[in-house]
């Protein structure tokens, strides 16, 4: 089922109520042709399950990996992703844009 923004925030709250560790990622800034608008959400649980999208698929894997650490430490992070470049980034946006993602734990 295709998830809408509100479904993502509902899922994040529901997962947390169920006792799961949960992180919420939000696209807070974009430059160039970013695939998802500012304000888009991705909810991630401690098992790596996720709902929503911050980039249309390019960097979700990296955000999910970072989410595990954010859930473990409780420290929010600001992540930045740019054009795919093996020396600077493990993952990147093939569209040529840049995005900044705020990743926080739901406590």
């Amino acid at each position: 089922m295709f998830a809408r923004e509100e479904d993502v925030l509902e899922a994040a709250a529901r997962w947390r109520r169920e006792g799961r560790g949960v992180a919420l990622a939000t696209v807070v800034e974009t430059w160039g042709s970013a695939p998802r608008p500012v304000g888009s959400h991705l909810a991630i649980d401690e098992a790596g399950g996720f709902l929503g999208s911050v980039s249309g698929g390019c960097v979700e894997g990296a955000v999910v990996a970072e989410a595990g650490e954010v859930i473990a430490t409780g420290e929010a992070r600001l992540l930045e992703f740019g054009v795919a470049d093996e020396t600077a980034w493990q993952v990147g946006l093939s569209c040529g844009g840049r995005i900044r993602v705020y990743l926080e734990k739901v406590v």
Binding site: E6, L9, A12, A13, R17, L24, Y102, E104, V107
Partner: peptide, 24 residues
């Protein structure tokens, strides 16, 4: 984010009321 804050945000949306979450 506090779960209570996230739930308040979801409740506002369910009631079709506009709101803004301010994050420093």
């Amino acid at each position: 984010m506090e779960l209570a804050l996230l739930e308040a945000l979801n409740a506002e949306r369910a009631a079709r009321r506009a709101c803004v979450l301010v994050t420093e």
